[in-house]
Design a binder for these strands. Structure first.
Length: 498
RNA sequence: GGUCGGUUGGCCGAGUGGCUAGGCAGAGCUCUGCAAAAGCUUGUACGGCGGUUCGAAUCCGCCAUCGACCUCCA
């Protein structure tokens, strides 16, 4: 185990706390996954990226993490809380497919995007429809404890009753009285005793496709219930970290807490983490706003807002340049900046393995600076996953690496072990913790072979000082979107403009 | 209307009560047959008004402004 102290901002206590695992080295982490009724958009990706970093850093620090991220494939209603059509069912109707075909289609799409973004799969990815029994059992416990009631085959959580014994609304900073006043009048709520109550189980009508047998007749589970049931099943009644997007704080996470307490009498989670929103034109990117960009559109550049495609790693890097708790406003400029910045970091990574250590005159200032960087970068990451600061450290390291590489491809002013440590930390942080990987522009062997020949011929022309030939090759290729880059050591490479 | 969170140099974006992250752009330089690329160096800042303090971008108050949540959303 790494000895670094990890601090996490706990949204429940609203303060930064030292992370203490319940049962080290094991850590249980639950993150609310997508409702698979549509393509995941870029905003969703940000959230999963945030917790990818949490997962990766915990693992890097030596924790054994059981990471559970669900797939919501039932129970998430379209219109109002506890009313309206099931999202999956609606989409199924629109696309004329079986609901599970919708689920399958968008689950695969979701996984494709996660892979593209180099986001590590969770340890367990349970689906709501696969845990109906667990959900029914949990409802039974809640009823037995007196926090839920049945009306016409539906079960509702009694928020007022719950609030008499436990604070409802602490996570999201809500006061129950306000909720009772401000909650809009919605259709289909007449069954509830109070507006703030929410459904644990909804009775299904005849036409409803996705329904299951229960002690209360045919029906389906409420949206919030699945996360309570599945986190309990796989992580226990109390676990370490629960994550999700800010917009899930209320009502989803608030209800989750109430359900868990209602079922077993104590709070389920030690550290609540919420990642902030991704903005687009200063507006939250959301499905309901209709201003969402799909990850695939981002990569292909096929979107009115975009000037060209931006690679998955560029996106990943852009997100990591700001703290997960800050909003990000995406723009062409920020994408371009990220593209250049990422290149710098990745270039230095590739230089690193070409630099040889050599015995020489030690430069004390450089030594102490690098020792400082080597430790600071971990400290920064452990400070509530401050990837922005860690990236600043990487830039500082990269400046050293670049200088060594461009001077002699060797380093002699620091001791061998410190250089090796720098090498190890730089590559581990870049690859393992931040999850940045090299992207090949053209993954095409045929083109590679042809280009290598052209580059070689041009090189010959240059050696013979036939500048008109070498320039013609360069200019013609440029017009075709291929850029030749000459480096100092005489080697040339090519890159495809997109 | 209620609750919460922002407001940092040309742009993006971190941040601790005193030692002014970082990136992009700009400027200078190195390399280069030329160019591109790459690299090195470098300036400018903390929404407004008060207060606390020896000292505040950092703490407090007021104002302005933007946004989020209060309804499905990561």
């Amino acid at each position: 185990m790494n000895s670094a102290t990890l601090y996490i901002y706990n949204s429940y206590s609203k303060s930064k706390e030292v992370f203490k695992a319940i049962n080290p080295p094991f850590v249980g982490m639950y993150v609310c996954g997508p409702t698979v009724y549509n393509d995941v958009h870029l905003g969703n990706v940000r959230t999963f990226l945030t917790f990818d970093i949490v997962f990766r850093l915990l693992t890097y620090l030596g924790y054994k993490v059981r990471y559970v991220r669900n797939i919501t494939d039932v129970g998430h209603l379209v219109d109002d809380a506890d009313h309206g059509e099931d999202k999956i069912a609606k989409k199924a109707r629109l696309e004329q497919l079986e609901p599970m075909e919708i689920v399958q289609k968008y689950t695969i799409g979701f996984h494709d995007v996660m892979r593209l973004m180099n986001i590590i799969p969770p340890s367990i990815e349970p689906s709501a429809s696969g845990h109906i029994i667990e959900q029914i059992e949990m409802i039974n416990s809640i009823i037995a404890n007196g926090f839920a009631y049945e009306v016409n085959g539906s079960i509702y959580f009694d928020v007022l009753k719950f609030n008499e014994e436990y604070p409802y609304g602490k996570l999201s900073g809500r006061v129950l009285e306000d909720l009772l006043e401000t909650t809009r009048d919605l259709e289909g709520q007449e069954e509830k005793r109070n507006k703030a109550d929410f459904a644990l189980w909804k009775k299904a009508d005849k036409n409803h496709i996705m329904k299951w047998n229960s002690p209360w007749g045919e029906g389906f589970p409420g949206w919030h219930l699945e996360c309570s049931a599945m986190s309990t099943k796989y992580l226990g009644k109390v676990f370490d970290i629960h994550g999700g997007g800010m917009d899930l704080k209320f009502p989803h996470h608030e209800s989750e807490i109430a359900q868990n307490i209602g079922a077993c009498g104590h709070a389920p989670v030690n550290y609540w983490m919420h990642s902030n929103m991704l903005n687009f034109n200063s507006k939250k990117m959301s499905k309901s706003e209709g201003n969402s960009i799909l990850p695939m559109e981002m990569v292909s550049g096929e979107h009115p807002l975009l000037d060209k495609g931006y690679s998955p790693m560029t996106l990943r890097f852009l997100f990591l340049q700001s703290h997960y708790s800050s909003e990000i406003d995406i723009s062409i400029k920020s994408l371009q900046d990220a593209e250049k910045g990422l290149k710098k970091i990745m270039n230095a990574l590739s230089y690193l393995s070409k630099i040889k250590w050599k015995q020489g005159l030690i430069h004390p200032e450089t030594v102490s600076d690098i020792i400082k960087l080597n430790t600071e970068i971990i400290t920064h990451l452990c400070d509530d996953f401050n990837t922005a600061k860690a990236i600043a450290d990487l830039y500082a390291m990269a400046t050293y690496i670049n200088t060594w590489y461009h001077q002699k491809q060797e380093v002699s002013e620091i001791p061998k072990d410190i250089f090796e440590n720098l090498h190890k930390i730089y590559s581990e942080i870049v690859s393992d913790v931040l999850g940045l990987k090299e992207e090949k522009g053209a993954d095409n062997n045929t083109l590679d072979a042809a280009m290598n020949l052209i580059i070689e011929l041009r090189q010959q022309a240059r050696e013979e000082k036939k500048w008109s030939v070498s320039d013609q090759i360069r200019d013609t290729l440029k017009a075709a979107g291929i850029i030749i880059k000459d480096s100092k050591d005489g080697q040339s490479t090519y890159e495809i403009e997109n």
